[in-house]
Nucleic acid binder design. Structure first.
Lengths: 343, 343
DNA sequence: ATTCCTGTTGCAATCGTTTGCAAGATAGTT
DNA sequence: AACTATCTTGCAAACGATTGCAACAGGAAT
């Protein structure tokens, strides 16, 4: 039964040496043949490649990585600083991750995902980099780890970070211009008739702080009272009740809400309705991200769009350039207003 | 300046041999000390561990993996068979992925993510397994690769799959009882007053086919007309117009819609409203998954809950058991009705 | 003093692949 | 016939950590 025999021989060819024996050449030649180097005779190469295919041989990437000092793997770290539980399941990060996987695959890299809790493991970034398992690292979100990332950036070039750009920072970052996004949001709320603005969300993370600051810029410029900060957690369960409380307390004293993310905006919309406030008549509402959910709420959510695909592309592109030795500037993406029904 | 000197020495200690020289012992001893083996003198160990810490030494995992023939990495493959673009950003899979990352991290494993397109790379699973980079593999979704997975399962034990359980299958699977879920959904629609049911979604993937079949079971048992299949793609843009068309065509001929996922249900809700159909008065609607979005729609979505956390836990638990040599049964999780406002 | 433990340590082979160097083969030149 | 070139190939040393085995020290037992 040829099938059985195939299976049998297949299992015996595990190493390049096995294959070499089979082909009657040395391991070195096999290695060169499979790598497609020009130093090996065309007929020999063909024979080897054939044998490799029929026996389902795959070179061991660990050994190869060790010898070549490169692994073909890019690490993706998600630091969970502020709100441990939530962020990794946050739609925005997940979407970005999916797109990153696509981009990296296209470029022939594998992706090693690591969720880290900096509070319980302050050494997370060095550990990841020093593991020898990855050729470079993409950090998704600065969280509250800006300083640590800066420290590492001095001695390690193969790193790109998704996040907010700070004047004079040393690590290479890709991200939306959050402050500008905040301005756009506030301007839109005002154009829709709002005068007393509020910002819904934790202002701790840099990205959010910048969005908040952008809104403040506009409020100040227009001579309006300062934007009221309504802090919340990110996890839906806690956020919901916090939002409910905020609205009950400040509800009629404000007429325009800028939510830090679409997810929060959607929750907010539900709570506003539950407390009898009409959107956008009583309160204008604007989100951030332009996630799919923004089109699905009723009324549909006006929001500030981040171009996630461009972000993923930029992260990978910059990282690969850095791996090739180039030094690269940070990439700041322009946000864009997506006007729908809530403001 | 001690800081500078620190940094300098730090960069020089890259290998276990460097550290050995510094500690005045042999590399073997260092290895044993860092691994916490009992064969090394307590004082020596302490000294070595101290040196390692102050110099920020991290053993190279590639080398370690090569020698020990285990890597500490679990592969997670997401086959994109049916609808290439969408699935990886599908909320359900992303949530599952996040939870898997948590579970694996807890157990001390890293996660290597690979999105594969079986149509363009029929060899995807063997390639992943044979790469030597992973100790085991979790496949998220059988997609249309059931047979290939079955083939591999015969010769490779370190694999667990998220998906649908088939009578007599050979690979170890964790998943919700989709057929039962379909029954629950149909029963609920009927209890809410529906008589002419439709199933919204592609019935190609096994999970969806089982949900559809479950609904058919009930329709047949109750003597109702067969459930109408309304096929759609999964990507939101295409799905939206397809749903609109379905509703325009079949709209008033049906009074109960069972959507294959909450995401589709949410889109459907929007389209129903756009076409002037009231939910649940004119049409009852039920989803599947119980994603966060199910609570955020208006009216809130009735749905069939999958316990994603239990799924992630089960996948990791079974895989680790298999790595330890146990042979394990598949795990079928019971779905649960989450009754809200749409049915 | 000799023998036998027990507890530590070093030595060197090993994991599987890659690659610089040198040797062998073949063809082409004078 | 001798001598270059040009291709191919094999040899063996890496990459860095682990581990079986042997060796050594010091103490206890005889």
């Amino acid at each position: 039964m040829p099938g059985g025999q195939d299976k049998l021989t297949r299992t015996t060819v595990r190493t390049i040496t096995d294959l070499a024996r089979l082909a009657g050449v040395s391991p070195g030649t096999v290695s060169r043949a499979l790598a497609g180097k020009s130093l090996v005779n065309a007929r020999t190469r063909e024979k080897i490649v054939d044998l490799a295919r029929t026996h389902g041989f795959r070179p061991n990437q660990m050994a190869s990585g060790l010898r070549r000092q490169k692994t073909g793997v890019i690490g993706v770290a998600i630091p969970l600083g502020h709100d441990v539980r939530q962020q990794i399941s946050d739609s925005f990060f997940m979407t970005l991750l999916g797109l990153l996987a696509d981009e990296l695959t296209d470029k022939g890299y594998d992706l090693m995902l690591r969720r880290v809790v900096p509070d319980s493991d302050p050494d997370w970034l060095d550990r990841f980099i020093g593991s020898g398992m990855i050729d470079g690292v993409i950090v998704i979100g600065q969280s509250d780890q800006f300083d640590r990332i800066e420290d590492v950036a001095d001695g390690y070039r193969a790193m790109v970070v998704w996040g907010n750009h700070q004047e004079g920072q040393r690590h290479c970052v890709v991200g939306t211009d959050n402050r500008l996004g905040g301005r756009l949001a506030a301007e839109r709320l005002i154009a829709a008739g709002a005068r007393r603005l509020a910002f819904l969300g934790d202002t701790g993370p840099m990205e959010f702080a910048a969005r908040f600051a952008g809104a403040q810029d506009i409020a100040a410029r227009m001579g309006l009272p300062p934007v009221l900060a309504l802090p919340t957690h990110l996890s839906p369960d806690r956020a919901s009740e916090e939002i409910a409380r905020h609205i009950a307390q400040a509800g009629r004293a404000i007429d325009g809400i800028f939510a830090a993310t679409d997810t929060l905006a959607a929750l907010c919309l539900t709570q506003l309705r539950a407390q009898g406030l009409r959107v956008p008549d009583d309160v204008r509402l604007i989100g951030f991200d332009d996630l799919p959910i923004a089109r699905q709420t009723i009324p549909a959510l006006t929001t500030v769009r981040q171009d996630i695909a461009a972000g993923a592309h930029g992260l990978v592109d910059l990282l690969l350039r850095r791996l090739a030795g180039e030094s690269t500037e940070s990439l700041v993406l322009p946000p864009e207003l997506a006007i729908r029904e809530t403001a």
